[in-house]
Structure formats: structure tokens, C-alpha cells
Design a protein around this nucleic acid. Structure first.
Length: 241
DNA sequence: GATTGATCATGT
DNA sequence: ACATGATCAATC
């Protein structure tokens, strides 16, 4: 048995999809084993494990550079933790926000639009009741921004970017935005990034990022049906009250 | 139970 | 430092 440490970048969309389909049904432990890795017992200290594992298995090229995961194809990879009914369990990080400049950026040129233009969604089992190594990978969905969805994202983005542009970033909470929201994105709450206040004066603000709400990604994945069904049957006593 | 704000690991 | 990959856990 061979033990590859990396996989080359897929050269075509068809190749990428074929690879992704071939991974569906595998557990994290099974996929990790192919790279001589051990799936962690929990994700508390390994939050990026699943994403990094799938990147590696699919031949994502970008590393931690600000480029699409599949550079030549212009496709972004996102794993999406879902429950037994296919509903997203977490929001999806999109990108960090250049606080001092976003007020002068237009939607067409925004990081959000670029990132979400084309996304390979890979649903994965995310319920905490399932041990991490045993969680399974679902069916991939190659998705493109449609005019309808773009209009919704743009609406939220313009509201949020507008607030920052006016110098009111400190007034933003995660409550704003129907599908897109802004939340902190930092090592801790003491991290600071340059921003501009209402008088045009620079100040140090908590770094923030754009996130897609779980309700929004659930719609996307449900609309195209992804994770068909992986043993949600076993009656191990999950009766809602 | 859902959501927001906080946090963790790794690579360049 | 700051980008990537996200989930945790307190709170609503």
C-alpha cells in the first residue's frame, strides 16, 4: 500500500468532481489513513482538520494563500458540517475584511463575490454524537453563484460594507444580514487591525470576517440534495422532546 | 435549540 | 503578521 503525502492539482472540473465523488462515503479515519494521518478524537484543537484533509485529498493548490483552492479552475473548496437531515450545523467563513478599504470597494470587485463565484461544497457529518474519526464524507456539489443568489448576497454585503465605510464597524453585530453576516475572525478578542472611524481617523479594531449563515448554506445544499443519507436510522435513542 | 462572539492550528 | 482551514462554548 502506498502512502502519498500529497495529490497533484486536478486539471479539469470533471477530474475534480470525479475525485470528490470517489471520497464520498469514506470516514475521516479512512481518508486520514491514506496520508498516514490520525483523525483527532475531537476538533477542539483541530478545527481545520477536516478542511485540510479534504484539500489534501483533492489536490488543492493554494495552501494558505489568498487564492482559490483550485487555482487553475477558479474553484473554492468548502466542507460543510451537516446533521442527519442535511442541515448545516455551522456558519461558513468566507473571507476577512479589509476594514480600512472596503468602503471604496464595489460588490463586483469584492472578496465575497470572488470567493463564492464557484464553490465545491462537500457536506460532511458534523454531529457531535458521532466520533470524529467515524464521521463520513458526503456527495460533493459544484455550485455557481446564480443571479438570484447573488442579489441576496449583494444586498447584505452592501449594507454591511456601507456600515464599515461610514466608520461604524464597532456597531456591527452578527445579527445584521439575512444570508451574509460579519463576525470576529481573530486569534482572540485582543487582536487588532487598522480601521477608519466616522471622522476618517484610523483606529485599531477587532479583525472581522464575512460568514454565510447556516440557514443559507442549508438551502443551497438542500436545493441540490447533497448528503443523501448515511445511517441516520439506528435507533440509538434520539427522541426529541 | 439557535446564534453570536471567541478561539485554535498551521502555512507563508 | 496575517492568511488559510474552521468549531467551540457562552448566551440569547
Amino acid at each position: 500500500m502506498t502512502v502519498p503525502t500529497r495529490v497533484c492539482e486536478p486539471q479539469t472540473e470533471a477530474e475534480l468532481i470525479a475525485r470528490a465523488r470517489a471520497l464520498s462515503g469514506l470516514s475521516f479515519a479512512e481518508l486520514a489513513q491514506r496520508f498516514s494521518l490520525m483523525a483527532p478524537p475531537d476538533l477542539r484543537r483541530a478545527k481545520g482538520f477536516v478542511g485540510a484533509l479534504l484539500e489534501r485529498a483533492l489536490g488543492a493548490s493554494a495552501g494558505s494563500r489568498a487564492l482559490p483552492d483550485f487555482e487553475t479552475l477558479g474553484i473554492e473548496l468548502k466542507t460543510l458540517p451537516v446533521d442527519g437531515r442535511g442541515r448545516a450545523l455551522e456558519s461558513t467563513f468566507v473571507c476577512t475584511i479589509p476594514l480600512a478599504e472596503i468602503g471604496e470597494v464595489e460588490w463586483q470587485a469584492s472578496r465575497v463575490r470572488r470567493k463564492l463565484s464557484r464553490v465545491l461544497w462537500i457536506p460532511v457529518q458534523g454531529e457531535r454524537e458521532i466520533a470524529v474519526p467515524e464521521r463520513r464524507i458526503g456527495e460533493p456539489l459544484l455550485w455557481s453563484l446564480t443571479p438570484e443568489v447573488e442579489a441576496r448576497l449583494r444586498f447584505d454585503w452592501e449594507e454591511l460594507a456601507g456600515i464599515i465605510g461610514r466608520g461604524d464597524v464597532e456597531s456591527i453585530t452578527g445579527h445584521i444580514g439575512r444570508c451574509l453576516q460579519i463576525r470576529p475572525k481573530a486569534a482572540d478578542s485582543h487582536a487588532r487591525r487598522r480601521a477608519i472611524d466616522a471622522d476618517g481617523v484610523g483606529f485599531a479594531a477587532l479583525p472581522r470576517g464575512f460568514y454565510l449563515r447556516a440557514s443559507f448554506t442549508s438551502e443551497i445544499v438542500r436545493a441540490h440534495y447533497a448528503l443523501s443519507s448515511y445511517d441516520t436510522s439506528s435507533g440509538s435513542g434520539e427522541t426529541p422532546t
